[in-house]
């Protein structure tokens, strides 16, 4: 690896090269019939993997499966389901 002077990192947001989906044991599944589009799941996600909308989109490349979205959803529209064993 070539080091830059001062170890400066020149590519903003480059952690997106590393996908954290392998950390996950449960994945959030959204029931679009129950979703009210309130956006709380989007607001509370520490990994910024949920986009606003009705239903919200989940970026499963980075979701770590913490389950905050399912726990906080006021409409109970999100459930955590076990990942399939590969």
């Amino acid at each position: 690896m070539k080091l830059t002077p001062g170890a400066v990192i020149t590519e903003p947001g480059s952690t997106t090269r590393y996908q954290t989906n392998g950390w996950r044991t449960f994945r959030p599944a959204v029931d679009s019939g129950k979703c009210t589009g309130c956006g709380l799941c989007w607001l509370y996600c520490p990994d910024a993997v949920i986009s606003r909308g009705k239903p919200p989109g989940v970026d499963y490349r980075y979701c770590k499966g913490c389950g905050i979205c399912a726990n906080e959803c006021p409409a109970k529209a999100i459930t955590m389901v076990p990942e399939e064993r590969g």
């Binding site: 952690t15 954290t20 520490p46």
Partner: peptide, 30 residues
């Protein structure tokens, strides 16, 4: 208020915080 917040994320995913990290959410919201 919630509606006027920007969609753009200035703190990118792929960071190595533990699942459910409170500090990371604080930085993202800030």
């Amino acid at each position: 208020m919630r509606e006027e917040l920007v969609e753009e994320e200035l703190f990118a995913p792929g960071h190595r915080a533990c699942a459910g990290c409170g500090a990371t959410l604080a930085v993202r919201l800030a």
